[in-house]
């Protein structure tokens, strides 16, 4: 008792001062993570950045100049965006209505487990499956010809749509699960309140759900976009890697492992990262125009 009084008289101790700023023993647990991030992310990034400014021709911006003057190289940016944007948008647009339906279901856990499986399978397995399914002798063409919708097999593979489908298949579960968690996070009594105030289903979606979902959907969009943007296996396996689906990661791969120009490869990787960052920052920037806070109607 008297010890407490003494320490109070002497003012807060160093430990109390630190605790007031949120620093205590538990803070030390962050250190391994910081070390890991420094070692595995920051260091390679800085190393790559330096490397990209040391091209073979000796000039500082040689790699970047070459990238942006060669349509075969800078074109990859648009080819990648042309895949990643529509795929992400489509996934999101499919995920929202399904999430709204699933939110009311009881056996959600079974469904989510089923959906996690394709994520764990990975793009390569899905691409291989597609090779069988959509191939000239695959089920798809044979079934279409059997019912008379097609007279000759069509080739979905080896082109834009092959990669598109593969990205939708592999990206959807992820987009959906994320969307579902945001949708179920909205207090159902808000919808009830809107209904008793005379709002029909469309108005409830527009006035209550959408504004509360936008921030979450923006994050979902960014994460799904980044996934689709760094596509490599399916662009090669079920796409047309020399032309229509020559995405930016292929350009980086070729620079590194076919031309053995690591400096150029680093530059391409930096450009790839910068484009992603631009999109993500733009999307998250729009998010700040909306309400961001707990999606519940009451204080805890």
């Amino acid at each position: 008792m008297s010890a407490v009084l003494e320490s109070r008289a002497a003012g807060p101790t160093l430990r109390q001062k630190l605790a007031a700023r949120g620093i205590d023993g538990a803070t030390l647990l962050v250190l391994p993570c910081v070390a890991l991030i420094l070692g595995l992310f920051i260091y390679p990034f800085l190393y790559g950045l330096m490397l990209s400014f040391e091209p073979k021709d000796g000039s500082l911006f040689g790699n970047y100049a070459r990238f942006f003057s060669d349509p075969f190289l800078y074109g990859t940016i648009f080819k990648t965006l042309r895949l990643a944007f529509p795929v992400t948008l489509l996934n999101l647009l499919i995920a929202i209505p399904i999430a709204f339906r699933v939110r009311l279901m009881r056996r959600q856990r079974l469904l989510t487990t089923l959906l996690v499986l394709p994520i764990t399978l990975g793009t390569v397995l899905v691409a291989e499956g597609m090779l069988f399914y959509f191939g000239p002798q695959g089920w798809f063409n044979r079934a279409m010809m059997a019912v008379g919708l097609l007279s000759t097999p069509i080739s979905v593979l080896n082109g834009y749509w092959g990669v598109f489908i593969s990205l939708v298949l592999t990206g959807f579960p992820f987009t959906f699960l994320l969307t579902l968690s945001y949708v179920t996070g909205i207090d159902p009594s808000l919808e009830n309140a809107a209904a008793t105030l005379g709002a029909g289903p469309a108005a409830r979606f527009r006035e209550v759900f959408l504004p509360l979902l936008v921030p979450g959907l923006a994050i979902t969009f960014c994460l799904s976009f980044v996934q689709a943007y760094s596509v490599l296996p399916s662009a090669v396996l079920v796409g047309d890697p020399a032309n229509a689906t020559r995405v930016i990661s292929i350009a980086a791969y070729q620079a590194a492992f076919e031309e053995y120009d690591y400096s150029m490869a680093s530059a391409i990787a930096m450009i790839m990262g910068a484009v992603q960052l631009l999109v993500v920052v733009a999307v998250l920037g729009c998010r700040s125009l909306f309400y961001r806070g707990p999606a519940a109607g009451a204080k805890g």
Partner: peptide
């Protein structure tokens, strides 16, 4: 449906629109 009944309701947990 509730929107067709037009009854007013004060919810036990308020259910105010947070945005």
């Amino acid at each position: 449906r509730p929107e067709e009944r037009g009854f007013g309701m004060v919810f036990q947990n308020y259910a105010l629109f947070p945005h």
